[in-house]
Amino acid sequence: MTASEPTIVATSGGLRVGERTSVMFDALAHHAVDLSGVHGRRPRVMYVGTAIGDAEHFTARITEAARIAGFELTPLHLFPMPNVEDIEETVLAQDVVWVMGGSVANLLAVWRVHRLDHILRRAWQAGVVLSGVSAGSICWFEGGTTDSFGPELRPVTNALGFLPYGNGVHYDVDEGRRPLIHRLVADGTLPTAHCTDDGVGLVYRGTELVEAVTEAPGKGAYLVRREGDRAVEDRVEPRRLPSVPR
């Protein structure tokens, strides 16, 4: 079972601290699984931790989170070599791909070496739901803002481009991101940008934004568009998702 059409859930959330575990999948990740349409068996979820160098300690935490959530988890490691024989076959067998945050610049470079960018496009077109947090959100767009290059935020403009927009993550907690997104949209470095507060996700069918959703109260999504030589921001009120028990 796969989604009925190409689906992306781009988020600034989806994970939280558990009561008995270091991390657990929150409502945004569960929503991505729901959108895959799987039923009658455990959802197959691929965890991609390239942006944090395939850190083994975090893969272990995500594996435990998947056990609690009832997901059948497959980690995809690219360091020091792919941990599966056939990357494309393994990716296409999933219901959801969940991409962890970290360095989006490094993620993009490593993915392209292994042609994972092409594989993920085929998976998206085949109905595998693509999702993730932070770098795992920006990667699906034309680009966004990142601290991949150092403490000062800079633009990244060579992301996968499945979605023809810019992307702003952690919009309410990192004070430098909103003004930089506005500047990049105003000067044409980025196209119209779709942005999320922490705890908010954006759902796309094909390349159309169909809904904003949230796992946290009081949060928002934002559309930042160019108007003349300035950027104009419009708030989108997200729908609150059901809470995931701890």
Rank of each mutant, 00 (worst) to 15 (best):
V129A: 04
H39F: 00
D229N: 07
V156T: 03
P191T: 01
G102L: 09
V110G: 03
V173S: 15
V48M: 02
D174R: 12
G150I: 10
A3I: 11
W111S: 13
A10Y: 08
S148H: 08
L120N: 06
T196I: 11
F58C: 12
P191Y: 01
I68A: 01
L108V: 12
E88T: 07
T50W: 10
P164F: 04
W111H: 15
G166V: 11
H118C: 08
L73H: 12
L116S: 06
D147L: 14
S103H: 01
A135H: 08
V129Q: 07
P179W: 01
V104T: 15
L73T: 12
E5Q: 14
R44V: 01
C139D: 03
F149L: 08
D147E: 14
Y47Q: 05
V210A: 10
E89T: 02
R115S: 13
V185K: 05
T207M: 06
R20L: 07
V9S: 05
E152A: 02
N167D: 09
R235G: 03
I119T: 14
I87P: 02
A105G: 06
V203I: 09
L116W: 05
T207I: 11
V84G: 00
Y165C: 07
E64Y: 02
L190I: 10
G166T: 14
R67P: 05
T192Q: 03
F71M: 12
T59Q: 00
P75C: 14
T146E: 03
V96N: 06
S243P: 11
G176T: 02
